[in-house]
Write a protein that binds this DNA or RNA. Structure first.
Length: 292
DNA sequence: GGGCCCGCAGGG
DNA sequence: CCCTGCGGGCCC
């Protein structure tokens, strides 16, 4: 699946399977599932988080199997058990927030002891991919603020507590199967275009500032997929805010050969390192703007 | 079982 | 480069 410049891999690791058991954190790291040998969250503020581990080290965790309420890192003295100060939305906590914003799937592994407190076995089980459905801060049991993340399983996988929902046949299974692809909003190429524009909309110049960082959307000019079959290349992508993305995809405006906007005021904002292909612009103009 | 300290590998 | 972190082993 998608990976980025530094080689951080999002999604399943080839050669590993959901349910696979690893002897310890070093084995998890060697397999490429979770690289840090101690930290519970793998990731960086800019790239997002690709993996977490549940070890039972944080009292505010809640594990329902397919749904996990995970606690951010920090707020403790070195290797302490209890929170003694507020957690910050930085480093790995910010990475998980970024994964929510970008829709990245996060690998989840559980210590066997965490999966079943009665278990005397050691080791970690790879539980598959989850999406970061939401994140927020609240006071934990200690009385200090913690960051919390609701993770929802992408893969069909056995639950620990909740019984399976009544089956309604193959439609549900198909939905689950397609979830992983659907939640990832960006290809590597799309992300690069957004970075070139500093996440500023090429129409209005606004970059949305969220607590997880800047947000913009990559809009394909000649759409991907049948029957258009536009390519996923930089010259076929615009960096837009969500409002102008919707307008562009639905005929609210289009672009002329000299990059003037048609349908709304202004002209397309450009940067030197990113040029659009006029052929794609003409395709959009021809097929998506009301003729009169 | 709890405390302590030794770790490594990643991230800032 | 220094610092941190949902380990882990060892000692009592």
């Amino acid at each position: 699946m998608a990976n980025n410049d530094k080689g951080r891999v999002f999604g399943h690791i080839p050669g590993t399977t959901v349910g696979q058991i690893f002897a310890d954190r070093v084995e998890l790291a060697k397999a490429g599932i979770h690289k840090p040998t101690q930290a519970g969250i793998s990731g960086s503020a800019k790239e997002g988080s690709d993996s977490i581990v549940l070890s039972g080290g944080y009292e505010d965790d809640e594990d329902f199997g397919n749904v996990i309420i995970y606690t951010g890192a920090g707020g403790k003295e070195h290797n302490a058990k209890v929170q003694t100060f507020d957690q910050q939305l930085s480093t790995t906590n910010l990475a998980l927030a970024r994964s929510h914003l970008e829709g990245y799937p996060v690998r989840v592994s559980r210590s066997l002891k965490h999966k079943d407190p009665k278990s005397t076995e050691k080791g970690y089980e790879y539980a598959g991919l989850y999406k970061v459905d939401d994140y927020w801060q609240e006071k934990g049991r200690s009385g200090f603020y913690v960051w919390r993340y609701r993770l929802i399983a992408c893969d069909e996988q056995p639950t620990q507590e909740a019984p399976d929902e009544p089956s309604n046949g193959h439609t549900e299974a198909r939905r689950v199967q397609t979830t992983v692809q659907r939640i990832v909003r960006d290809t590597k190429i799309a992300k690069r275009v957004k970075q070139l524009h500093n996440y500023q909309c090429q129409v209005c110049g606004i970059a949305l500032e969220t607590s997880a960082g800047l947000y913009a959307e990559a809009a394909h000019i000649k759409p991907l997929g049948q029957p258009h079959n536009g390519p996923d290349v930089e010259s076929n992508i615009l960096c837009l805010c969500p409002n102008h993305h919707v307008l562009f995809d639905n005929g609210g405006f289009t672009i002329s050969d000299d990059l003037k906007l048609i349908g709304i005021e202004g002209e397309l904002k450009t940067v030197t390192r990113h040029t659009v292909d006029l052929a794609f612009i003409q395709y959009h103009h021809e097929h998506y703007h009301m003729k009169r």
